[in-house]
Amino acid sequence: MADTAERSENPVKVVFIGGLGRSGTTLLERLLGQLPGVVPLGEITHLWERDLVGNEMCACGATFSHCEFWQRIGQRAFGSWDEVDLERLNALKATVDRTRHIPALASKKLAPAQHQLVTEYAEYFEKIYTAAAKDTRANVVVDSSKHASLAYCLRWSPKIDLRVLHVVRDSRGVAYSWTKQVRRPESPTGDQMTRYSPAKAALLWNAQNAAFSLLARRGVPVRRVRYERVIQRPRKVIASLARFCGLDLADSDLNFLGDGWADLGPSHSAAGNPMRFTVGRIPIRPDEAWTEDLPDGTRRMVSTLTRPLLGRYGYLAEDEAVADEPAREEVSARD
């Protein structure tokens, strides 16, 4: 990228899946993870607290401390997971990896002191990505951390070749999904996944999606992907995204996808939606419960709060959409 530090000769190729949670990001990660040359890692932003400290369960079924894959990664990346300075990492995260820091991170140039903090923080992730790529001999590492602020931090690393898949879903479906109770099976205490009110979910939907739109104007390759399109035409979408990721596939590499189903193999996703534990054939069908179960008043409220981006992403009827914002999807946006 022209506005970041000069890249090293062989940066690790990272595909960052971004967007607000409950938008289909885990499904997309699982589908991409079936492609040859791809290693999906889950939501690395949560690895430090949930796995390194909490020793939660890897998608393979083993606890983090007993997962051979992650123990190898820790050895390659840091010499040992015990060598990770969590206190320093958490201090850096609070200083640079927050949504409120995005305006500064989006600058064309950072102040020297800020640049040093951002690149130091990004190095923790770069070491994991590089170790995973070497361990699995993968060409592409997938991180489904979702948070825009982390993507903005990663863009400043000279050792990361960053590409972003910006996943969007109808805000009303997302808001409804955030109200549901979902148990976290990896939690030893049976914790529930975070829940938000529809109003808060709508505001977060606006903030995250707007942030990724800005990222595309900062020299980072960004491809917008609609969840609904993934469900409708998974084979076509995954083939297109593979090209965006720099993968050269044969038709047979997509045989894990059929008419309304996908065959998923095991993975080592470190954190994320409970779907990461699923192995075998899964149905691929639209989740449209919100169209009947979301109260009319709540639907109107969410529509009002998110109307500009709903129109831009093509989720409103033609007469409702923002007139000067044509609907676009699966578009690589660069300036």
Rank of each mutant, 00 (worst) to 15 (best):
Met1Pro: 15
Asp3Trp: 02
Asp3Leu: 12
Thr4Ile: 13
Pro11Asn: 04
Ile17Asp: 00
Leu20Ala: 05
Leu20Ser: 07
Leu20His: 06
Arg22His: 15
Ser23Lys: 12
Thr26Val: 05
Leu27Gln: 04
Arg30Lys: 14
Arg30Thr: 08
Leu32Val: 12
Gly37Val: 02
Leu52Pro: 06
Val53Gln: 05
Val53Ser: 03
Gly54Phe: 08
Cys58His: 01
Ala59Ile: 14
Cys60Phe: 10
Cys60Trp: 10
Gly61Cys: 10
Thr63Pro: 10
Cys67Arg: 03
Glu68Cys: 10
Trp70Thr: 05
Trp70Lys: 09
Gln71Lys: 09
Ile73Tyr: 08
Arg76Phe: 04
Arg76Ile: 08
Ala77Tyr: 14
Ser80Leu: 07
Trp81Phe: 04
Glu83Val: 02
Val84Leu: 15
Leu86Asn: 12
Glu87Pro: 00
Glu87Cys: 09
Leu89Met: 10
Leu89Phe: 15
Leu92Val: 07
Ala94Ile: 02
Ala94Val: 02
Thr95Arg: 02
Arg98Thr: 01
Arg98Trp: 00
Thr99Asn: 03
His101Thr: 03
Leu105Glu: 00
Lys108Ala: 04
Ala113Met: 03
Gln114Glu: 00
Gln116Arg: 11
Gln116Glu: 15
Val118Thr: 02
Thr119Lys: 07
Glu120Leu: 15
Lys127Ser: 13
Ala132Pro: 12
Ala132Lys: 03
Lys134Gln: 10
Thr136Val: 05
Arg137Glu: 07
Ala138Phe: 09
Ala138Asp: 00
Val142Arg: 08
Val142Lys: 06
Asp143Tyr: 10
Lys146Trp: 05
Lys146His: 08
Lys146Cys: 11
Arg155Glu: 14
Ser157Asn: 02
Ser157Arg: 12
Leu162Met: 13
Arg163Gly: 04
Leu165Pro: 13
Val168Thr: 09
Arg172Thr: 07
Val174Leu: 10
Tyr176Phe: 15
Thr179Arg: 12
Val182Thr: 00
Arg183Val: 13
Thr189Leu: 12
Met193Thr: 05
Ser197Arg: 14
Ala199Cys: 04
Lys200Ala: 07
Lys200Thr: 14
Lys200Val: 12
Ala211Asn: 00
Ala211Ser: 14
Phe212Glu: 02
Val220Asn: 07
Val222Asn: 01
Val222Cys: 06
Arg223Met: 06
Arg223Lys: 15
Arg223Gly: 09
Val225Gln: 09
Tyr227His: 08
Glu228Val: 11
Ile231Cys: 02
Gln232Asp: 07
Ser240Leu: 14
Ser240Asn: 14
Ala242Asn: 14
Phe244Cys: 06
Cys245Trp: 12
Asp248Val: 11
Ala250Met: 05
Asp253His: 11
Asn255Ala: 15
Asn255Gly: 07
Leu257Cys: 15
Ala262Gln: 05
Leu264Phe: 03
Gly265Leu: 06
Gly265Glu: 09
Gly265Gln: 02
Gly265Tyr: 02
Ala270His: 10
Ala270Thr: 13
Ala271Asp: 15
Gly272Glu: 08
Gly272Leu: 10
Phe277Lys: 02
Gly280Cys: 06
Arg281Trp: 05
Pro283Thr: 11
Pro286Met: 03
Glu288Leu: 12
Glu288Met: 05
Ala289Pro: 07
Glu292Met: 06
Leu294Gln: 04
Gly297Ser: 06
Met301Lys: 11
Met301Asn: 06
Met301Thr: 06
Thr304Asp: 09
Thr306Cys: 15
Leu310Gln: 14
Tyr315Leu: 05
Tyr315Met: 01
Glu318Ala: 14
Glu320Ser: 08
Ala323Ile: 03
Glu325Trp: 08
Ala327Tyr: 13
Asp335Glu: 10
Asp335Gly: 13
